[in-house]
Amino acid sequence: MATELRAVVLLSAGIDPVSGRPAPVGTEIRAIGLARALGARMIGLHAGPAAPVLREYAGYGLADIVCLDGAGHDPVAALARAIVSGSLFTDGTVDLVLAGRRASGGMDSGLLPYAVAERLGWPIVADVAEGQVAVPASRPPEFDVEQARPRGTRRAARVAAPCALAVHDVASCVPDFVFARTRMAVLRTMPSGLAEPSAPVTETVEERAYRRRPRLIASTATQAPGGQVLVDPPPQDAARAIIDHLRALGVLPPPAGS
């Protein structure tokens, strides 16, 4: 292919949510599968020291993994810097950044793909379940992706490179795990190029106590017992009654112009 895609897959040193053992993250495995489905050449990028678990991603088809040394205090800046530096691929710039959509519970963050995309100034499509290169081919390439929505629905979207895609858990593109590949994995360490912070980074995280969110329908339904009984109404009246009821509950917005 003349215009071969160059993709970076963001990898975290994940943990298995059940056992708490180091394990590759499911959505990131699917990100590798999506990059393969798009026919992209891939480099894995990890902000942090080389961890043994990263080698397992190689089993899913990501042979080349770069670890950014000294990125711990600002992974977003380190990753964005590495992506635009042009030093990852020898033959061109990065077209595509793929990541999991949510943290797995290890030293990772669900916000990271969005923060990296923001830092890069690239568009990001979240919850990607499927994707392909749009036809006819264009330069820069465009991607037809499907976002997973609640209750199994899908939403189509088109996005042009360079862009970021955050992959959803329901994506079916799980690549085969090949043990022999893990033996051939190359884990490279590159300096992040970030200056060490002069003062220790202070956590600027605000912790709020857990607050139970009220559920709209459940709460209002208990307040308003009874209702209206219509016997054999004309369809128009029945529809009107249902809409009025839903408006009264606040499920539907009030009529336009009111």
């Binding site: 298995d16 059940v18 056992s19 053992r21 394990a23 590759p24 397992e56 089993g59 799980v174 690549p175 085969d176 795990f177 090949v178 043990f179 022999a180 590949r181």
Partner: peptide
């Protein structure tokens, strides 16, 4: 399995859970 990764989907899932959770069903130990 080792050279090609060609196992059945159900088996692939069990094997992944064994690697990640040390349990083929992915259940808490």
């Amino acid at each position: 399995a080792l050279m090609l990764g060609q196992v059945r989907p159900g088996a692939a899932q069990a094997l992944r859970r064994m690697r990640d959770s040390a349990e083929p069903g992915g259940r808490p130990l």
